[in-house]
Design a protein around this nucleic acid. Sequence first.
DNA 1: CGAAAAATGTAGCAGTCGCTACAGATTAGC
DNA 2: GCTAATCTGTAGCGACTGCTACATTTTTCG
Lengths: 164, 164
Amino acid sequence: MSKADEKRRACAQAVAKYFLEEGLADNSIRTLAEAAGTSDRMLIYYFGSKDALIGESLSLIAGSLSDALDQQVGAGIHSASALLEAVTTATKQPVFDRVVRLWFEIVGQAVRGKEPFATQGRLVADRWIAWIESRLPPRQRHSARELFATLEGRLLLEVLAEKA
Amino acid sequence: MSKADEKRRACAQAVAKYFLEEGLADNSIRTLAEAAGTSDRMLIYYFGSKDALIGESLSLIAGSLSDALDQQVGAGIHSASALLEAVTTATKQPVFDRVVRLWFEIVGQAVRGKEPFATQGRLVADRWIAWIESRLPPRQRHSARELFATLEGRLLLEVLAEKA
DNA sequence: CGAAAAATGTAGCAGTCGCTACAGATTAGC
DNA sequence: GCTAATCTGTAGCGACTGCTACATTTTTCG
């Protein structure tokens, strides 16, 4: 990998971190550049456009989701309801609170079909459901979507009730 | 009610309709003014600020939510699971599709505490849960929140899968 | 070393944003 | 009809947006 690619990746990572901490709202390339320790000029140079940068950053976050879930939820779960409770507990960790808030912001953009949020949104949902399926006993795999739905609803209520 | 108040109300209504149809994204006062058949100048004159206008418009939508639910869901429901299915079916109507998409956009703003979305978001959630409670047999009232959660999760999955 | 290529800073364009100063039009009360 | 209050159009301010033209520096390679 060339030096430029490394910097490019580092920028995407820094922007991903920024989004997790600060949200999607203040996302001008000048702000993102400051967060990544570079200039707006270079961000465009690396990524070609703001949308491409955001897309890559979100993609990084989506990719790290199942890892984070694995770290928080142990493997010894044997029923759908136990898994739901385990994940519900796990998502109360601060690290997940950040992911969840960002997740709902992405959904808010995705429901109008705005890219890159729509694509990345579907990707995250699929990944999440796949993760649930992988932790479910084979006979209960079909209920992964319904489990995911219940989890999402709970998260929404929590995140809406809490102060941001 | 004075003539100015009537116009003010009409503007808030028009903007509410616009949000339902077009979403929250393109919400400059110039755009909203066009949607309401007036000028940005007058919008500020009536409401004092853009935030106040948006707040009132969202408030109108929140207020009409239970009416819409009543219209779509009959009264003869006697169990939690039957209610959940009835509401799930009802929310597939186009009129609800619009409300639901707007709802997730509001949530996306609310999770960062941005006003007036945070306040109105909590209001809508409370109203929604209260409506569910009112339709539940007394012995099952405590499960209104969980029912709401499941419903929300289903809506999220649907609205994310569909094209906007 | 010298030329080509890659990287980066500076300045700015053309557009949008919320909002306001000013002026003129319209209406209300006497 | 006159005055005062209310209403509304016009023009524009200063800040911000994504992005680019241009110039310069730094690196690469023969």
